[in-house]
Design a protein around this nucleic acid. Structure first.
Length: 491
RNA sequence: CGGGGUAUAGCUCAGUCCGGUUAGAGCGCACGUCUGGGGGGCGUGAGGCCGGCAGUUCGAAUCUGCCUACCCCGACCA
């Protein structure tokens, strides 16, 4: 089996890093904290983008592109927003280089200092709202529903491939609305869209919820989140959707004239998911043999590995492959026929397992004779011999089954690792020894939240939106609580 | 930003403590050959300013000092 891969039990963090690199998703780059997304990794990201982009458009959004660089003064306009991002900004101060006087390389030309420094965007609210001011005059201009696919930079102290990189790729939606109800609805609708994507396409079960005040996005009135559980018992925030109230409208003076002829500030949302989801994909589905990509995200659904000695045999196999490929094409299933002769079958088996291709077909002289193939599932590692007749239909069914099985497996894992704690002792014991999600009562105060975080490293992931709301008392203060909230250690 | 670690072939690493001819291994790569149903065997070959700068010495991958970069673990954060 994948000989060189560290097992999850041995060292989960090491397993993750190795898997990302060895499966060809990404690699470290020459730039600190920034990664190279390799073709295979990028093709999965493209699948994610493609699906989400279609859904955004179906729900009335349009794509646009705003500048990478933002004038420093823009950040000062929304107080909480600056506070949240100031510590991790890359700043452009000059616009020219010149040869150094000693002739050894280049230096920044001191004469080329910018009047006003530019910030490499950590997020685009400010530049976008500055622009919206010019786009919005009347209630007829609303709602304004814009999305941007972009890269952003946040100068993180400590980075991890996909999970926290200094530069990352994402989409950020920025919408403007006439009233609060509509804006809240928008942010909730996007939250549902995200959750739907994660569960149906990524096969990652998520919990929808709202963030506590201290975990809220800088400048938001409410941050909605989708949270997932990784195999090491830690939580990962998969995406967020913010109700921004009128904060940015006020900061950038974006007003519209209502039907009644009254001047009003608009209401805003912003929402985003990033390449971080790639990390979730690895950590939720991967096993000790490598990645497992759910069929609905897989750039390649089926790979066929020919086994042969003589050229005539390969020619015969190729005939079968071509025919099957054509059938699968018509079904929207992508098959790769790997006839490279510099790698041997066993090597290819391992390689595709590492990459997580959902289905593998091995076909050799033996199979040709019996008019069958060997079909292997990546999720269960199960191998069966199946007839050539009706193979494409069989594949189609199997892919659906794999998709479902992966989701069910992840959900079962999450359920097994979801606990309820009624006392703080119980809570600490679970967080320390078992990990996972812990439902517990909390009095709603930031102090209690902080105390728990300090003492256990577990944070409130969210106040869940769904499920029954059971009243109780806070496990720390004994004060009343309207419902349990979800705690976990998180990435 | 604290703590730890690493830097030698494309990759993973030995060699450094105890300085001494020509710096090694495995994998990968190239060519040949036998092969081919779970990372093949054999043979031949290419590939190195031993992270940088300075010092000690007849002599430095090895000792000393300074620097740089990256990784891991924490704190902070999506």
């Amino acid at each position: 089996m994948a000989k060189d891969l560290t097992s999850r039990n041995e060292d989960y963090a090491k397993w993750y890093n190795e898997l990302v690199i060895k499966s060809g998703l990404a690699d470290y780059s020459a730039v600190r904290g920034c990664m190279v997304i390799k073709p295979y990794g990028y093709s999965i990201w493209e699948e994610m983008k493609q699906y989400l982009d279609r859904r955004f458009k179906e729900t009335g959004h349009q794509n646009a592109a705003f500048p990478l660089l933002i004038p420093k003064s823009f950040f000062a306009k929304e107080a909480k927003h600056v506070e949240g991002f100031a510590k991790e900004c890359a700043v452009v101060t000059h616009y020219r280089l010149k040869e150094s006087p000693d002739g050894e390389g280049l230096i920044v030309d001191p004469d080329a200092k910018l009047e006003e420094e530019l910030i490499v965007r950590p997020t685009s609210e400010t530049i976008i709202w500055n622009t919206y001011k010019d786009w919005i005059q009347s209630y007829r201009d609303l709602p304004l529903l814009i999305n941007q696919w972009a890269n952003v930079v946040r100068w993180e102290m400590r980075t991890r491939l996909f999970l926290r990189t200094a530069e990352f790729f994402w989409q950020e939606g920025h919408t403007a609305h006439e009233n609060k109800t509509e804006a809240v609805q928008e942010s909730r609708m996007i939250l549902d869209l995200y959750a739907d994507f994660m569960e149906k396409i990524m096969a990652v079960p998520v919990i929808k919820g709202v963030k506590t005040e201290s975990e809220r996005f800088a400048g938001a009135e409410d941050t909605f989140t989708v949270e997932a559980l990784m195999q090491d018992g830690k939580a990962l925030q998969m995406g967020t959707s913010h109700f921004l109230g009128q904060n940015f409208a006020r900061a950038f003076d974006v007003k519209y004239l209502s039907k009644e002829g009254k001047e009003e500030y608009v209401w805003a949302t912003s929402w985003g998911v990033s390449t971080r989801m790639m990390g979730a994909l690895v950590m939720v589905h991967g096993d000790d043999n490598g990645l497992i990509v759910p069929p609905k995200l897989a750039p390649i659904h089926v790979v066929m590995v020919p086994i042969y000695r003589k050229e005539e045999q390969l020619a015969q196999i190729r005939e079968v492959a071509d025919k099957l490929k054509k059938e699968l094409d018509a079904m929207g299933i992508v098959m790769k026929f790997d006839d490279r002769d510099n790698y041997r079958p066993g090597w290819k088996f391992n390689e595709y397992e590492l990459q997580g291709v959902p289905l593998r077909i091995a076909i050799g002289p033996r199979d040709l004779e019996n008019e069958s193939v060997e079909l292997a599932r990546r999720d269960t590692l199960e191998k069966t011999t199946v007839a050539l007749a009706g193979l494409s239909t069989r594949i189609q069914t199997l892919l659906e089954e794999i998709q479902m099985n992966m989701f069910e497996k992840a959900r079962a894992f999450r359920e097994k690792n979801t606990h309820y704690a009624d006392s703080y002792e119980e809570f600490r014991e679970i967080i320390k020894n078992k990990g996972g999600f812990v439902y517990a009562h909390w009095d709603g105060s930031a102090e209690t939240e902080e105390k728990i975080k300090q003492e256990t490293k577990a944070s409130i992931r969210c106040i869940p939106l769904e499920g029954e709301k059971e009243e109780g008392i806070c496990m720390i203060s004994g004060k009343p609580s309207k419902q349990r909230v979800i705690f976990a250690r998180a990435y």
